[in-house]
């Protein structure tokens, strides 16, 4: 049953991520007064890309050929090592948040190397920018992990979520709020959303992520697109479960609680994704060289969260 729920969790992420991505587009369109495409548009696009023939750009090597697959596999692995629908998944004691960050980076690196392997200016430019953002996110993300792991005395995600569930009032503390803000900025940056990067841009010079995968086409592009939307959903799911783990299934033994876990996850992720999309309407993409300001800000949030966790006395209501 526990393996079944693991497979269920991975399948769920694969299935809902194109929908959630489309939901965000829909909400943005509505907020801007447009009708927006149907919710199934993402799935249709993936299907269309899968049917297309591949084009191998002349001069590229195996790094380019393998990059989309590694990116997708790393994302699939991520969806297997994070508590999204249940607290007890097989192997849950074998990974921690640092490992999760490492796997995230492996995906980014794979795409970056693929971009460099195309030997075009766009591939290199995208890789350079994406890696720069990834490098500068690292302090913020690790600091947020630090802040979270102080209260659970462990960096294991399952333990952190468990600690939150068993002591929910811990969440209503300044340190949690600070860590949450820091992590949300990290998620926005890591998923390449406004104001760091604009996923729907068509102007090469402002692209980060899209420039890197400019040469990727056909089924490989489908992989990259699917993986990107999965990463967004996984990151959002991670944040909601770290801070609001309501509804997550305690065990994997009862079917009812797992169904509840799935429903809760879908609702929570849709809500936060919708909120992000709605806020994006009011924001413009930052200049690349102002991105460090935002990331420094998120680092400071994490830093304050850690200091506050050490210096503020523990409140027991």
């Amino acid at each position: 049953m526990s393996y079944l729920s693991l497979i269920l969790q991975i399948t769920l992420i694969v299935v809902i991520s194109p929908l959630i991505g489309q939901l965000m587009i829909k909400i943005k369109s509505k907020a801007e007064g447009r009708r927006g495409p149907s919710l199934l548009q993402g799935v249709r696009e993936l299907g269309k890309l899968l049917k297309k023939g591949e084009i191998n750009p002349i001069g590229t090597g195996s790094a380019f050929a393998l990059a989309p697959a590694i990116y997708l596999v790393s994302t699939l692995v991520l969806s297997a090592i994070i508590p999204l629908i249940a607290l007890k998944l097989p192997g849950s004691s074998n990974y921690d948040l640092f490992w999760v960050v490492g796997i995230l980076l492996i995906g980014t690196i794979a795409l970056g190397l693929g971009g460099l392997d195309t030997a075009t200016a766009f591939g290199g430019m995208g890789a350079s920018r994406e890696l720069m953002v990834a490098a500068l996110i690292e302090p913020s993300i690790l600091m947020a992990i630090y802040a979270l792991s102080i209260r659970a005395n462990s960096s294991n995600i399952f333990k952190i979520v468990h600690a939150t569930l068993s002591n929910p009032q811990q969440i209503a503390s300044p340190q949690s709020a600070l860590a949450l803000i820091g992590l949300v900025i990290v998620v926005v940056a890591e998923a390449g959303r406004i104001p760091i990067d604009n996923p729907s841009t068509h102007l090469e010079l402002t692209m980060i992520h899209e420039a890197m995968v400019l040469e990727v086409n056909g089924p490989k592009l489908a992989m990259v697109k699917l993986a990107s939307s999965m990463r967004l959903v996984i990151l959002i799911g991670l944040v909601v479960n770290l801070f609001f783990p309501i509804g997550i299934s305690y065990s994997t033994s009862s079917v009812g609680s797992i169904i509840l876990g799935i429903v809760a996850l879908v609702i929570k992720v849709s809500l936060l994704a919708g909120l992000l999309a709605f806020v994006e309407v009011f924001l413009a993409k930052l200049r690349l060289f102002r991105v460090p300001e935002l990331l420094a800000g998120s680092f400071v949030f994490g830093f304050l969260a850690v200091t506050a966790s050490y210096f503020l006395p523990v409140i027991k209501a």
């Binding site: 300044p174 709020a177 800000g297 409140i315 027991k316």
Partner: peptide, 25 residues
């Protein structure tokens, strides 16, 4: 209660610091 007062107090002074820092930004 003491607990909720302290908790609210912390949040508020946290917000106070946040707005101070935001001015620097």
């Amino acid at each position: 209660s003491v607990g909720s007062f302290t908790s609210l107090f912390y949040f508020d002074i946290g917000a106070f610091l946040f707005f101070t820092m935001a001015i620097a930004w």
